Each structure stands twice: as C-alpha cells, then as structure tokens.
Amino acid sequence: MTRTGSMATFGSAVVPVAASRQARLAASASVVGLRRINGLLPPNRVGIAAGRGLIAGVMAAFGPVLPGTRVTPVRSGAVRGEWVRAAGVAQGDKAIYYIHGSGYVVCSARTHRGLASRLSKITGLPVFLIDYRLAPEHRFPAAADDVEAGYRWLLDNGYRAEDLVIGGDSAGGHLALDLLLQNLRGDIAQPAGVFMYSPVMDLTLTLAEVRDRKLADPMAPAPVGRRLIELYTEGQQQDSPRLRLTIPDGAKLPPLLVQSSAGEMLADDARHLHDMATAAGVPCELELWPGRIHVFQALPLLVPEAADALRRTRQFIHAALEQARLQAKAS
C-alpha cells in the first residue's frame, strides 16, 4: 500500500485513508445499539431466532435488493440456493458463486440477496447464492459439504471452473478457502479467482478477541461470535484440518482478493489469510478499508465506501476471468 495525500493505493486501487463521516457515525451507533443487543441474546432457540431476525432486518434496511432483480430458486438433490440476476443481466457462461456469512448460524441466501444483486449489476454476471444448512440444526461439516456440493453442481451443469469466481464473507470466507483446499485434495479444477469480505480464519476467535478488547467491534462482542461458531463446531477438535485451515507451500490456488474494515475485530484474520497465502506462493491482494463495520460491502446505505469496494471487486473478477481465459487458451 502506498499513500497519496488522503488516499491509499493498492496496486491499481485507490482507497480512502479516512472513513467517511457516515461510516464513523454508523460504527459508533452500532456499538451502543446492535453490539449490545447481540451481546444480550441467549444462545438458545429463542435467542438464535431473534438474532436471525435482527440481522435479516439490518441487511434488508441497509442493503436492499435492487429493483428489477430476478431471483430463480434452485432445488437440485442436496443443493439449495438461488440465482440472482440484476436487471438486464443474462444467464451466460460465466458466473459468481457466492457463499454468505453467518457465523454458520444466522444468515441465508435471502439475507444476502441485496449484495448479490449489486455484485450482479456491477459485474454483469449472474450470481449463484448457495443456501447451506445452518447450525445448530446442522453441525460441522454440513455447511462445508453443502458449499462443496454447490460448486460440483455448477461444474456438472455446464460451467467450466475457469469461468467461475467464488465470493464469500465472514464465515463464507472460511468455507471458500475450505472448498479450495478440498478441490486441491480431490484434484478438482479451481475457479478463476476468489474474493472475500471480512473473512474469519481463526474459528476460536482468539485473534478477534484481542482486537475487540482494544476497540469494541460495532456488530457483536467476540465471545458472542465464538458461541455461534461453537454451535457449528461442537464435538470437533480445534486443530481439525477443515477447521484450522492451512495453505500448503506451492499450493495451486487461484488469486485471492481480501477486503476487510481496518478497525473491525476480524482485521487480523484478513491479515493472517494474506500472510498465509503469500507465504505459500498464492497471489493475494489485501485491502484494509477505513472504518469498523463488518462486511460493509453489503450495507451501502449505511457505509458509502461499499460502492468503491464493489468496484474494486469488479476489477478483480474481470481480471481473474481474463487471466484464466488466457491460461486455458495457452494450454
């Protein structure tokens, strides 16, 4: 990253050094509002239902679905999801495969439909949102298995791996990396690229808790996030290779784009992923955007920087698809 006046440059990207006033106010309000509410919700059926409703309301209010968006449900064997296409976007031979976040517990394809519609509009591509099973009703490895099944379904239905770009946020980032590593183990063709928003890498949230103590995360206290994740990982060893993910040296993985708010509690998880990938020889761009809102890209009416972050994502997606096309042609 190089600084130019009040801006920072990531490769060809120009990112504001300071958060907008609106983003700062949103973070401050969330600390005294959303964070406290999430901290009070009990980890039982009533609390989980309330949490799911709360997050769905926030996503709908500050990241609504764009007018004219077409949504096509998918029910095929074990695969559940939906195609999301912004107005004027055709169902072509290239697509985005999106894995929503949730702490493995609280979100769904429906909550992320607004984000998917914006990704579709800005890229001109259809977005397939996988609606994986949630905990505590379905524990590990249900979500990971569903994500893998969704990718295989796309390949089985005519999409070439080099014509797909995977996206994911929060727990969806962890699931995306797990999918890449499963592809590696099974000698399955990798997608053209992967972008991640505020990915969680340390499922114990140890890194996040250290940051949260220094600066309260606006969305939820770190122990709340840990309790959610434990509903998914209950009964598993923390060092399970599909929970504590590691990228082997020389791994043939596609290029990665990692975006996170610089002040959120998962910023160090983003740094860890970047360091792990680059040490293994995997191309990885890390962008730490000013502000503190988790997955701010999904909340454009709350955080104005979301539009610029999505434009950066578009640049990455199109560059990854073009690079994959040239590599496929050369081979």
Rank of each mutant, 00 (worst) to 15 (best):
R118H: 07
R152K: 07
L41P: 00
G88I: 10
Q327V: 08
L266V: 14
R312L: 15
E230S: 10
T9Y: 06
T111E: 02
K329Y: 05
E209G: 13
L115A: 13
A251V: 01
L326E: 04
A279N: 07
R292N: 14
P73N: 04
S108C: 07
D269V: 03
Q182M: 13
A87M: 06
A27P: 09
A109F: 05
N157Q: 11
L179D: 04
G103I: 08
G33I: 00
P42V: 03
G11W: 04
R227N: 09
W83S: 02
D187H: 09
Q259K: 05
G11A: 02
Q323W: 03
I229R: 11
G168D: 11
P43W: 06
G225I: 11
D275Q: 13
H112C: 02
L184K: 06
V65F: 05
Y104M: 07
D202A: 12
P73C: 01
G150E: 10
V127A: 10
L115V: 11
G167C: 13
V258A: 02
R244C: 15
D269Y: 08
E234W: 04
D156L: 14
A61F: 11
Y151P: 08
L66W: 04
L205F: 11
D187W: 09
G47E: 09
H138T: 11
A143Y: 05
D146S: 06
E82D: 14
G124S: 01
F195E: 06
A251M: 01
S260W: 12
S120Q: 03
T72P: 02
A143G: 07
Y132M: 03
R152H: 12
S20C: 05
V224C: 03
L175T: 05
C284Y: 03
G114S: 09
A86S: 11
G114N: 08
Q190C: 00
G173C: 03
P73K: 10
V282C: 05
A307M: 15
A109P: 02
Q323H: 14
A13Y: 14
R211I: 11
D93M: 03
H318R: 03
A171I: 01
Y197C: 15
F296V: 14
G81Q: 11
P304W: 11
Y159D: 00
P223M: 06
Q297F: 07
